[in-house]
Design a protein around this nucleic acid. Sequence first.
DNA 1: TCCTAATTGAAAAACGTTTTCAATTACTAG
DNA 2: CTAGTAATTGAAAACGTTTTTCAATTAGGA
Lengths: 152, 152
Amino acid sequence: MPNVPSPTVHTDLRAHHRKLTRPRQAVLAIITAATRHLTPAEVYRQAKVQYPHLGLTTVYRTLDLLVELGYIQRIHLEEGCHSYAPTARPHGHHLVCSECGRAEEFAECDLDTLVRALQTRTGYEIQVHVLELMGRCPTCQTKSRPLRARKK
Amino acid sequence: MPNVPSPTVHTDLRAHHRKLTRPRQAVLAIITAATRHLTPAEVYRQAKVQYPHLGLTTVYRTLDLLVELGYIQRIHLEEGCHSYAPTARPHGHHLVCSECGRAEEFAECDLDTLVRALQTRTGYEIQVHVLELMGRCPTCQTKSRPLRARKK
DNA sequence: TCCTAATTGAAAAACGTTTTCAATTACTAG
DNA sequence: CTAGTAATTGAAAACGTTTTTCAATTAGGA
């Protein structure tokens, strides 16, 4: 049962003189239903099932569009930057293990106070923040501390 | 006045059977003196002044090495992922204007509570945090506000 | 139903990054 | 100080990802 695009998306698109095409529906269905962040290539592969004629170029363009409209957000990971995730889940920050690359996601970030103070002091209008934490995950802590962890 | 590599780096390298070569010295001088994050390409351009024969490949390799040794850290920004910044200066955070690229630096960041909570919850040993804020600086705010900033 | 602007996909170009490899270089042992 | 060796180098090529180009197609308002 293919995901029916929410009426809101439809309306939003119309408001911007954009069209709700079949390729877009396919991309939308995949990315909004995603339980984890997906790379454009992953979205492409999955959305092709629903609409086999889909082109990769269109996936990129649609993801851009959805970010613009605020339906999804672009996130940055250590390995192969640039994944996308539905905005529904309020914005995820990441805690990344610097040894094995494993990552945990967390939502809370108590930056409002800081952001407000900085806005006042600098006059900037702060729109986005990127917060990344790095450390060693429990598993890597148990392994002997690696003197020379060479990446293959 | 070319930056003399700190004796510590020298020692660290020797301990790992690595060499302190001229190309590495050039990269080291640039990245450790950087007042803001630099992309590999920027490091390349700047380090070439000191050592014109430098190759881009070597810049990538040296940056990797310095991250491994903990002298610099890789950070992720919205535009053109992957920049590097010296770890030395205990964390300077940046507030970057997304229009003109101007950046302010700030030191305070009240993440201790968050960090402690996350350590408890996830079992990670959190070592580093990167916090970047983006917005519009006062000057750019006075310029016409872009209703639909289309990326060129 | 027609018209037009928006959208599409394929191919090619443009990135940023990594790999390969023969030549060079810095350190170490003698 | 010199020779030997392993680490390092840069150019070129390979790579994967993202963007651009462009003619053909399509959705939705008139």
